[in-house]
Amino acid sequence: MFSEDGSGLMPARRLLLIGLVAGFALFVSFAVYVYQGELKTQLWKPALDAALEKVNLRRISNQSNSSTTQDVSPHPMPFNVTDPLSGYVNVLDDRGPLKLHCNVCAMVSSSGQVLNHEAGTEIDKADCVIRMNDAPVTGFEKHVGTRTTIRVASHTSFQLVNKKKADLLVKNKGLTFVAWGPDKSMTRDGKGRIFNGLSKLAKELKDDVDMYMLTPQRMAYADKVFENETGKPRQSSGSFLSTGWFTMILATEMCDQIKVYGMISDEYCKKYPQDETRYHYYTSPGNGHECDLYKRHENGRKNVHRFITEKTVFSRWATFHNVSFHFPSWH
């Protein structure tokens, strides 16, 4: 292995050995590099995947936006996806929140339009019949039916309902009563005037009627839905929400199919400018015409109901919640 002159390894063999050592060192370095690279990739993989996912989602979104402008999101946006009726709480502390589901709901308008048709028999066929505020049944059965499953009332109408409780509430065993109102009227601290009245009535009728109210979160949600659908904040636009607004939201959460009776569309008053249908079917004709009231409120600057705007929104919701409008038809 040594050279003939004793100077060490022979030149050729020495070069070969040096090459082998260098090659081995290079191989080890490369293996370490690869291992570290793989390790780093594994450590950063979650962040990398997340970033790529965002890019991919953005790309899909851009493709969707470029191919169509149709809004496919649900209307209204749900208050709670897993528990749609959360936020409707019982007036009595020892009773649970609202739990009610109906296959077919008949939502009966308080408009004088219901008097133009005898839809009572058809309305009574629905699984659940929904009425609003102090709209009566007695004396109008052939037009509005005889059954009432749910009655939704505003804080301003509660006293009227209370005065007619024998006919509107007690007469309907098992009735579900839902009241809505601002926080100051519905607070449970003894200062809420409407809540105090509801509580007293609930204790009196607890064997016949289940009474519920909207939580402050539910009330805020109703405002937010109005803003989302119209682009205008409710308060700063000078708008009051109607009982119809709260009732339609409840119906979309509770019913598989909604049949609305006696409600006019947003275009009705334009098509029939001379229409003199009364605002409520149970008030005297001299108490005002529906279209006159709708126009006055729609054009008002503050403290008004946007009835026509609400009807435009309802028309949009109809495609998402199997809503149809009868007597008059909206189509």
Rank of each mutant, 00 (worst) to 15 (best):
M1R: 12
S3P: 00
S7Y: 07
R13K: 13
L15N: 12
L16A: 15
L20T: 10
V21C: 12
L26W: 12
F27Y: 14
K54Y: 04
V55Q: 14
V55Y: 05
N56S: 15
Q63S: 13
Q63C: 14
S66L: 14
V72K: 05
M77V: 15
P78I: 07
F79R: 08
D83M: 07
S86R: 14
G87W: 06
Y88P: 02
V91D: 09
G96E: 11
C102G: 01
C102T: 03
V104G: 00
G120F: 06
K125N: 10
V129F: 01
I130D: 01
P136V: 14
H143C: 04
R147T: 11
F158L: 15
L160R: 15
K165A: 15
N172W: 05
K173A: 15
K184L: 10
K184T: 09
R188A: 11
F195W: 10
G197R: 08
A202R: 02
K203D: 11
K206S: 14
D210Q: 15
M211K: 01
M211L: 14
L214M: 12
T215I: 03
P216L: 11
P216N: 09
A222T: 15
N228L: 13
G231T: 11
Q235G: 01
S236H: 12
G238T: 04
L241W: 02
G244C: 07
G244R: 01
I264F: 02
Y272S: 02
P273K: 04
Y282D: 05
G288P: 04
K302H: 09
I308Q: 06
E310L: 01
W317L: 10
W317H: 03
A318K: 09
H326W: 10
S329M: 04
S329Y: 00
W330N: 02
